[in-house]
Amino acid sequence: MTSMEKRLQKELQALTKDPPAGVIVNTESVSQNMSEWIVDLYGAPGSLYDGEKFQLSFKFSPRYPFDSPQVMFIGPNIPVHPHVYSNGHICLSILTDDWSPALSVTSVCLSIVSMLSSCQEKKRPPDNAIYVKTCSKNPKKTRWFYHDDTV
């Protein structure tokens, strides 16, 4: 087993045994391909997304955990949020600049849940239209500028 697989195996065990509230890993997707996970995410009670279900796609390179995972929303319901583009791309610093090998799938999910929970108004990023038209398919190929941590 490579160090990437060993690490993901550990993360999978921890995430299935002791999942944080509103985070459910789709073990069927993982059993087919260890380097691509699908995680179901539920909007936190009391937040603007209460009762909504979302899907996150995680893709891991052989250099994981040194390379950050490629993470985006997929499926029919992409949350309407000032940091989430309508194509599922997420503007979140720990997914690129601030990624650390000590972070994990669990900590990424928790950050995304918290990002959704602190949202005051459901709206798309101001540059959604132009971004979705010109961006790469892979959100990690975007050079993100993180300017606003308050939403």
């Binding site: 955990p65 090998p101 000590a102 972070l103 994990s104």
Partner: peptide, 10 residues
């Protein structure tokens, strides 16, 4: 508060 399963390998 660092998660054990990520830090133990390092």
């Amino acid at each position: 508060g660092f998660p054990q399963f990520t830090i133990e390998d390092f």
